[in-house]
């Protein structure tokens, strides 16, 4: 069975929010829209986002790290949001593993958001239904789009190409290779939800310079050394016999 998912490379994510707004823009007018905003031009605006970047600081100055952490529905293989839904609105597609909500069946009881350990669901206060990332289901399955564009909006937008999209059940897919070779990990595996989305960790490059590498034989300072003549005075030529 196909399981579509995102692999997000934290090694290159700069937290620019391109994925956040491109997602919102595509989806608000798409199949899963609208992503309702409240008070968008006033104080304390709030609204529905399928994808958010959370930024954390870790460590103690000056040894700190800043993590930009994009988070959306992880399209779990065993999604806890599905069995708790009393109306069957929350479902997992059999053809590609994407977890979706059917708004026509949703009664806004929020059981699914309580069941989701990742906080990935967003309640639309205006329409009173639960919404969430669809992996841009209306892009990825739209055969009228060229194949290069049959990807989630966030993936196409990402300037650092930190978001890779594909089938994690296909061992040869780009996502599977990335997970395997670059230490990809799921979030909180202890919950047993088997999240499909994975994250790639930070990697550090360092340079070691040994002291003996500092000065080489062709050091340009040697060029500038003025010729030093021996000081006038006695030499062995003068005193030895």
């Amino acid at each position: 069975m196909t399981q579509l998912a995102l692999v997000i490379d934290l090694n290159v994510c700069v937290g620019c929010h391109a994925c956040v707004t491109s997602c919102k823009e595509w989806n608000t007018s798409g199949w899963a829209g609208p992503l309702t905003d409240q008070r968008p031009y006033d104080a304390d605006p709030t609204g529905v986002f399928f994808n958010r970047v959370q930024t954390y600081e870790a460590g103690v100055f000056p040894n700190t790290e800043t993590y930009h952490f994009p988070k959306s529905c992880l399209h779990c293989e065993d999604p806890p949001c599905v069995p708790v839904c009393p109306t069957g609105a929350s479902y997992k597609r059999e053809d590609n593993g994407v977890v979706l909500v059917d708004y026509d069946k949703c009664i806004g009881c929020k059981y699914c958001s309580w069941a989701c350990p990742y906080g990935a669901r967003e309640f639309d206060e205006q329409q009173k239904v639960m919404k969430k990332c669809t992996l841009c289901i209306d892009r990825i399955t739209d055969m009228s789009l060229p194949e290069s564009e049959r990807k989630p909006a966030c993936v196409l937008a990402c300037p650092t190409r930190a978001r890779i999209y594909g089938d994690i059940h296909d061992p040869d897919s780009e996502v599977s290779v990335a997970i395997r070779e670059q230490g990809g990990y799921p979030l909180q595996p202890e919950w047993g939800t088997k999240p499909s989305n994975h994250y790639l960790p930070r990697r550090k490059t360092r340079i070691q310079i040994h002291e003996d590498e500092l000065v080489r034989v062709d050091n340009p300072l040697k060029k500038e050394a003025l010729p030093t003549l021996p000081e006038a005075g006695e030499t062995l030529d003068d005193v030895a016999w």
């Binding site: 620019c16 391109a18 707004t21 007018s29 290069s148 909006a153 937008a157 300037p159 190409r161």
Partner: peptide
Amino acid sequence: RHIEGNPDHPLNKGAICAKGSSGI
């Protein structure tokens, strides 16, 4: 409807940033 990066453009090669997507 929406704004996306032009994949053939030498500058952004299809990428678009948070502001660009928000042009709407």
